[in-house]
């Protein structure tokens, strides 16, 4: 049976500091995914990941257990993302990594869409998705990322962001509308 987050926290607080590595292994992927989708750059996402776990470790005693550990961790990661965005003035469109998951560079071809291989079309679409997502205001982007990719419930997102559920739904709706407008423009251009 898997040991729970709370049990690992108890062990860590009891002095078994290495136990915290279990939490890192368990949550590094979601935190990296959230950071990458919020910031658009692998390097920034890695840094945020590191910062998040370090901050969580240092402040573990302050974690009261009112909400889930993962919610607390997401909150720390989002704060780190926002702080990074503020530092660089939220310049995202120019800084999105132009690479896919396998590290291949996107090439924005001028070819006729009918002649484009499926893979290339899909890559271009993925790139447009990144651009459209990063063109959203951060408060909408984070809600879409948490709902769409992290598959959190409205209540969990509301808890992480300390906002009402209705605000979460409203931001999600507006974000999806803006994404729709941008992506439909791209489809028309094709």
């Amino acid at each position: 049976m898997d040991i729970s987050d709370d049990q690992i926290i108890e062990r860590t607080l009891a002095g078994e500091t290495d136990a915290f590595s279990l939490l890192v292994r368990r949550w590094e992927r979601p935190i990296y995914g959230l950071s990458l989708r919020m910031l658009g750059r692998d390097e920034d996402a890695r840094d945020v990941c590191q910062e998040t776990f370090l901050a969580a470790f240092r402040n573990l005693r302050k974690f009261r257990g009112d909400s889930k550990f993962s919610s607390w961790l997401y909150r720390i990661a989002l704060n780190a993302c926002h702080s990074r965005m503020r530092k660089r003035g939220n310049v995202v469109e120019q800084s999105i990594d132009l690479e896919d998951d396998e590290g291949r560079k996107f090439e924005l071809a001028d070819d006729d869409a009918e002649l484009m291989p499926d893979r290339m079309q899909r890559d271009q679409l993925a790139f447009q998705v990144r651009k459209a997502l990063h063109a959203l205001p951060p408060e909408m982007r984070q809600v879409i990322v948490m709902k769409e990719y992290e598959e959190l419930t409205f209540a969990e997102i509301a808890d992480i962001l300390a906002i009402p559920v209705s605000t979460v739904k409203s931001r999600l709706y507006t974000g999806l509308q803006q994404m729709r407008a941008r992506l439909e423009k791209f489809r028309t251009a094709l």
Binding site: S21, L54, V129, I144
Partner: peptide
């Protein structure tokens, strides 16, 4: 469309307490 952006891997976070 959103589902086309998948993160294939996550780098290992080096954590030393």
């Amino acid at each position: 469309d959103l589902s086309t952006w998948q993160v294939g891997f996550a780098p290992r976070t080096e954590f030393v307490p």
